[in-house]
């Protein structure tokens, strides 16, 4: 599905990714974890060529991205969804318009755009928020709009760059549930970058551990499932008063 071959990238002379080869199978939820600065976000951004590799090749669903013309690359990107830590929605567009723009870019048949945009919003449970602006939404809702936008063009891959890192535990669980849903119901391959061990453990079936721009190891794990975290005030007090050394 996705394969990187001897990919390297450096920023102003500093190597960030050092000759990484990695392949990700169709239908996987593939986690990438590592310390800050290990290069995990850069690696993810190399998959849709948001960063152009200095050397090596990138292949996604049979397209050799590194060999495409600009126009072909733009075309291929339409089938690779991406979501970000800070959502990156257009604040001056409504929820509906944010999803619609993805369809406009892909020249989705005009008559079906509205239906498709609403369908995607329904999938993430935000159908009734279509006329709201991002500023009126919570963090979790913004991320769900971003997910709807990324899904609009029926992607076969969804790249997630720290999608839950600015969300609270409860909302994190909510977003992870949506991601699992996308993987299982729509068969979308997911690549998930996160520094949160809990997130990776809960939904990934394969993991790459990175260190200093290289792959330390890649192996399979059994997803632990998403823990429904209790976020009531009473529970928080209970946790704070708990004598245990560290929380789970």
């Amino acid at each position: 599905m996705i394969s990187l071959h001897n990919v390297s990238k450096s920023f102003s002379g500093v190597p960030v990714i050092q000759s990484i080869s990695l392949s990700i199978a169709q239908g996987d939820i593939h986690g990438i974890i590592g310390a800050s600065g290990a290069g995990k976000s850069t690696l993810l951004r190399l998959i849709n060529l948001l960063e152009t590799p200095d050397s090596g090749t990138v292949e996604v669903s049979g397209h050799k991205l590194t060999a495409l013309t600009n126009k072909q690359l733009r075309q291929t990107r339409k089938s690779i969804g991406m979501i970000f830590q800070h959502f990156n929605l257009v604040a001056n567009k409504t929820v509906y318009e944010n999803v619609l723009v993805a369809l406009e870019l892909a020249k989705y048949p005009k008559g079906e755009r509205r239906k498709r945009a609403l369908e995607c919003l329904r999938f993430v449970g935000l159908e009734h928020f279509q006329t709201k602006y991002p500023a009126q939404l919570s963090g979790g809702q913004k991320q769900r709009v971003a997910i709807a936008r990324a899904l609009a063009n029926h992607p076969n891959v969804l790249l997630c760059d720290e999608p839950t890192s600015s969300l609270d535990p409860h909302t994190t669980a909510e977003i992870l549930t949506v991601l699992t849903d996308i993987n299982q119901r729509l068969g979308v391959t997911i690549v998930l970058v996160s520094h949160e061990m809990k997130v990776i453990k809960s939904i990934c079936n394969r993991v790459t551990v990175m260190t200093e721009g290289t792959v330390h190891d890649t192996f399979s794990i059994t997803p632990k499932g998403i823990q429904e975290t209790e976020s009531s005030a009473g529970h928080l007090v209970e946790q704070l008063m708990d004598d245990g050394d560290r929380d789970a």
Partner: peptide
């Protein structure tokens, strides 16, 4: 990030600017 999201969706330079 807004421009990045646009580029990741396959927007051309003209589309990034206008849309």
């Amino acid at each position: 990030g807004v421009m990045e999201a646009a580029i990741s969706m396959g927007a051309s330079m003209k589309e990034v600017i206008i849309k």
